[in-house]
Design a protein around this nucleic acid. Structure first.
Lengths: 199, 199
DNA sequence: CACTGGTTTGTACTTCCAGTACAACATACG
DNA sequence: CGTATGTTGTACTGGAAGTACAAACCAGTG
C-alpha cells in the first residue's frame, strides 16, 4: 500500500480540492473517483479506504514541509537565523498548497487520530522548532526561557495558525512573496515581542 | 431547537468524553444515547442530528470562554495587563474542560463548517485579542507593528495551540494554577520575545 | 375529572454509502 | 504461450443516520 504508481498518485491530487471544500465526510468515494478519473475499484485496490486517501495526501504535504524546513535548518548560521529560514520555508510550502492545508485543517481530528500522520505532523511542524529553540540557547542567539516546552509549543502555534489561516483564506498568486511577508511579521513577534521598548 | 430543557442539556455532557475520545464519526448516535441515558428518539426530537450535538457542546464551551475573557478584558487596566488577564481566563476555562477541548480539536473541521460555531469560535478566541492589540497601541502599553492582522493571528495561535495541547494532553488536577503558569510562559513570549537582549 | 397540548419513548422502516466480492479484461514479461 | 500483476465494471452486504408513527406520559386548565 505504500507504493502506489506515480500516475495514480498524481491523479489523486484532483481530490484535494474536493476534500478541502466539503471535508472527508462530505465527500463520497464515488465523488473522488469521478474527480480523479480513478475508478472506485481501483482506488480500493491500492488504498484501504477513505482515510487512506486523506493520509496519502496529507503525508505528502507533511513530507514537503519537513523537507523544506530540514533544508532551511541545516545551514551554518546561528539558530535565530535558521529559525527565520525555517519559518519562511514552512509558510512557503503551505501557501503553495492551499488545498492540502485546507484539507488538513478540515480533517485535523482525523489526521491526529491516524498514528502515522500524527507523527508526521509532529515531525514537520513541531520538532524542528523545538530543536532550534534549544540550539539558540546553546549558541547564544536566542534567550533562555523558564519553560522551553510551553514556549516551543506557542511558537509552533503562532507560525502554524498564521500559515494555515493564510492558506485557507486566499489561494495567493505569489505564494513565496506572501510567505516572506508573513514570516517577517511572525518573526518580529516571536523575536522582539509586543511590549513597548524602553529604548 | 435553541432551548433544550436544562435537564437534558446537563445529561448531554456525558457524551463529551465519548466524542473527545473517538471523534464524532467514531461515535454512534446509539452510543450517545446509551452514555447519556437519553433515548435516541428523544435526541432527535430536540436536536437535528449528530452535528447538532457537537454544536451544542462546543457552543457552550465557546460561550464560557467568551464570557470569561469578556470579564477579564473589561477592567480599567492598560491593554497589556488586560491581555495577560485574558490569556489566564481563556486558559483557565480550557483547562477546566479538557474533554470539550479535545472534542473541539478533534472535530475542528466540522466545527468550522458549522456557521454558528465558526462565528462563536472567532468571537471567543480571536476577536478579543485583536481588540486588545489595537487598544495597546492606543494606550501605549503595546508596540505598534506593521501588520497587526497577521500578528493578532499569531498571538491567537500561540495562546490557543498551547492551551489546547495542554488540555488535550493531561486533564490536570489544578486547572487554574496550571493556567496561570502556562499563561506566564506565553505572555513572556508574546511580550518580550526570544531574541537575546542587549541589556 | 376529562380535554388538550406538548414531551418522551419504543419500534420498525428507509436511505445512503463504505467497503467487499468477483469475474472479466489488460498488460507485461519470462 | 501462460502466469502474474494490475485494472475495472457490477452487483452485493452491512451498518449507521435519520424518519415515521403510535403509544404513553405529564402538565395545566376549565
Amino acid at each position: 500500500m505504500r507504493k502506489l504508481p506515480a500516475k495514480l498518485a498524481s491523479q489523486l491530487y484532483g481530490a484535494a480540492e474536493l476534500i478541502a471544500e466539503r471535508g472527508l465526510d462530505g465527500t463520497k468515494i464515488e465523488d473522488i473517483a469521478e474527480a480523479t478519473g480513478i475508478p472506485k475499484a481501483t482506488i480500493y485496490y491500492h488504498l484501504d479506504g477513505k482515510n487512506a486517501v486523506l493520509e496519502f495526501l496529507l503525508s505528502d504535504l507533511l513530507d514537503m514541509i519537513a523537507g523544506a524546513v530540514g533544508v532551511a535548518v541545516s545551514s551554518a548560521e546561528d539558530a535565530r537565523t535558521r529559525l527565520e529560514a525555517a519559518v519562511v520555508a514552512q509558510l512557503g510550502v503551505m501557501l503553495e498548497h492551499p488545498f492540502l492545508c485546507r484539507a488538513l485543517v478540515g480533517d485535523l481530528g482525523r489526521a491526529t487520530r491516524l498514528p502515522e500522520l500524527a507523527l508526521a505532523l509532529r515531525a514537520a511542524f513541531y520538532e524542528p522548532i523545538e530543536q532550534l529553540l534549544a540550539d539558540g540557547v546553546a549558541d547564544g542567539s536566542l534567550r533562555q526561557v523558564p519553560n522551553p516546552g510551553a514556549v516551543a509549543l506557542s511558537v509552533f502555534g503562532a507560525i502554524t495558525v498564521a500559515g494555515l489561516t493564510a492558506a485557507v483564506e486566499g489561494p495567493s498568486d505569489a505564494p513565496s512573496a506572501d510567505a516572506v511577508r508573513l514570516s517577517a511579521s511572525i518573526c518580529e513577534l516571536i523575536f522582539d515581542g509586543l511590549a513597548t521598548r524602553g529604548s
